[in-house]
């Protein structure tokens, strides 16, 4: 499918701020599963953009606004064609836990097996993971069972958490948004030694109004496979991948710092148009 994605973020500060430095991760990744036909980033007040690729191969746009300014608007416009791989059969064994042990020698996945800023490999997570995968000796089946578990365990509730909510709190409160679903699934996979990473992107439906988050797990022989615990499904042609990392902290779309007031309002506006079905 082909999409136009228009993503606008606007901050209004209670009083003018200055010396604003920002790293933006909004550019869809050029990967076999999707072609990025165009990408445009527009920043106001106008600023010079530079870019680099980070450790996790995310494309980062950087800009600075030294002068005093009362608002900041960041507009990203992408045109993307998705061509997702066929989903893996949900009823087959694909990769035993014994095979999983070879993963670190095939793929650089050390980081995706450790605790990270928002994900912690706690005994509690381990207990949940072991209970949810009881009797399974296939990692793929285990991952599907974990996704199903997370989907049932957490209640989706808008605004119940914020971007800094840790996996521990998510387990305690049993509710959250897509970011929290992803963090929990990542934690449960990692305690079972299945490499899992966080993905930010868009679920490209006409009703989408924000970014989405999901999970990728690494299975030797099958590579990184995407799973959406919020919807308990594998990825389809409506998923557009923007960035990946250990957890949200590595992919936050706008990572900035400025001098001035803490008081500001933020408006996010995402509009997705289907160009070709």
């Amino acid at each position: 499918m082909k999409f136009d994605i228009h993503h606008r973020t606007r901050y209004v500060y209670a009083s003018p701020v200055r010396d604003s430095f920002n790293d933006i991760r909004l550019q869809p990744m050029p990967i076999p599963e999707q072609a990025v036909e165009s990408f445009l980033l527009r920043v106001l007040p106008a600023a010079r953009l530079t870019h680099f690729k980070d450790f996790y191969s995310n494309w980062v746009n950087h800009f600075e606004i030294p002068e005093s300014h009362g608002y900041l608007s960041i507009e990203a416009q992408s045109r993307v064609i998705t061509r997702p791989p066929a989903p893996l059969p949900a009823d087959q064994n694909l990769c035993s836990f014994a095979d999983m042990r070879g993963a670190p020698s095939i793929e650089r996945c050390f980081d995706y097996l450790q605790s990270s800023r928002f994900v912690e490999l706690t005994p509690e997570a381990w207990k949940l993971a072991v209970d949810a995968t009881h009797g399974l000796d296939d990692a793929w089946q285990a991952v599907l069972a974990l996704m199903k578990f997370v989907h049932g365990f957490l209640k989706y509730e808008s605004n119940s958490t914020n971007v800094h909510t840790h996996m521990r709190e998510v387990i305690a409160d049993q509710r959250g948004v897509c970011q929290d679903f992803a963090h929990l699934l990542i934690g449960l996979c990692r305690v079972l030694k299945i490499p899992a990473r966080y993905v930010s992107g868009y679920l490209a439906t006409e009703t989408a109004s924000a970014m989405h988050a999901w999970v990728e797990v690494f299975l030797p022989g099958h590579g990184w496979r995407g799973l959406d615990p919020t919807h308990n499904c594998q990825l389809g042609e409506t998923y557009v991948k923007v960035a990946n990392g250990r957890d949200y902290a590595d992919v936050s779309p706008i990572n900035g710092n400025y001098r001035g007031t803490q008081q500001r309002t933020m408006e996010v506006d995402v509009k997705i148009t289907v160009l070709e079905g």
């Binding site: 430095f21 530079t50 600075e64 710092n257 001098r259």
Partner: peptide, 22 residues
Amino acid sequence: DPTVFRRDSMLGVPGLVHAYRA
């Protein structure tokens, strides 16, 4: 550089790391 490393650092220079990178 508080924009890249510790955000609470008052000792650094905002944007320094990017200038270094450039």
